[in-house]
Design a protein around this nucleic acid. Structure first.
Lengths: 187, 187
DNA sequence: CATAACATACCAGTTGGACGGTTTCGTCAA
DNA sequence: TTGACGAAACCGTCCAACTGGTATGTTATG
């Protein structure tokens, strides 16, 4: 009835925007703030439109998590392409990808927080386990050393500390730490 | 009217039970499942009773988080008492406390998951930062080395991996890792 | 008997989601 | 080139269940 229908249709754009808004809400106000009304309202899309793209709230969350995993995969793959040494390559890719996602200027700091929030949902945790398992099987030939496991563990620790703002350390110490971690992947 | 009022009054027990139920709900079904109705229902206490102990939902969550921090503090302090060497004592205490909380048989595996869920709420994240800051100031004399920071970071990584079930490694590798971490705190 | 420890009843707002409508778009026959 | 047509991309409304919270009880306990 109103002019609302008359705007151009851009399904992919709208879909992405819905995911972005959901991510922003999750990182800024926590899981309890991610409601269908809030998401649809903040993105200028009706709830009907939202439920057209994502048939249920769970589907929305899963899609959001999936997009984050895809972004992580892409970042890892990019880092791995620039790495000539096969041994420990995936672990270095994982490390660099996590660090890069933090250092991106435009609010991709949200990325970590959204991941955190989503990981707190038990249903999505299984998806994460599957991802890790799949990766560790995929790179069992080059990245199954104890040291590599330690580096990946430490990467998670850095990721967690970054997002919580705890364990603040100066850049010098950070540089030395990262250098040491990379060294460990090469042993 | 019913016999509900006739049962014995045991405020501390009821209060603790409410916290336990909230923790269980959070770890099993995520933050969105922690509602006043769900908590009061699952603990056999009326919603009025719940709101008598915790005047608001936020107060309940804060109290829950506070109790977790208290438990962590206690575990650290206990570990530190058994440690004769001052240098790096807090960091070792932190490491041992996190490991001990994991190895406790009765569902204290929940502990990590609840912490995770609570940490995903932005309001409580600040409380965590304060805790870390307070601790790092308190032990600036004995635990401010770069290596100590690294160990605490790695501890967080282990904690995260344990709770997510990712990065699974055998006991041998784990033992070696922990040994190395302890060694680092002593340098 | 005063107060803390509960319970019961109720409320206004919000929740996820079902539903039926309207508009645009790709496509394919004429 | 057109234009009909089905599907996809939206919109707006309604609803039952649930949400956090209030107000007012009732009972046990010091």
């Amino acid at each position: 009835m109103s002019t609302a229908h008359h705007r151009k249709k851009q399904p992919l754009f709208v879909r992405q925007q819905l995911l972005d808004v959901a991510a922003r809400l999750a990182s800024e106000k926590g899981m309890t703030a991610v409601t269908l009304d809030a998401v649809s309202g903040a993105s200028g899309v009706s709830k009907g439109g939202l439920l057209h793209h994502f048939p249920s709230k769970n589907m929305l969350l899963e899609a959001l998590f999936e997009s984050l995993l895809a972004r992580l995969d892409a970042a890892i793959e990019e880092a791995m392409r620039a790495d000539p040494m096969p041994h420990g390559r995936f672990t270095r890719g994982y490390l660099h990808a996590c660090l890069a996602l933090r250092d991106q200027p435009q609010g991709t700091k949200d990325w970590a927080q959204v991941t955190m929030v989503l990981l707190s949902e038990p249903q999505l945790r299984q998806r994460w386990r599957d991802w890790v398992r799949g990766r560790s099987e995929e790179y069992v030939g080059t990245d199954s050393s104890v040291d590599a496991a330690i580096v990946r563990l430490a990467t998670d620790g850095i990721w967690l500390a970054d997002l919580l703002g705890s364990h603040d350390m100066d850049e010098g110490a950070r540089e030395r730490l990262i250098g040491r971690l990379i060294e460990l992947t090469q042993l």
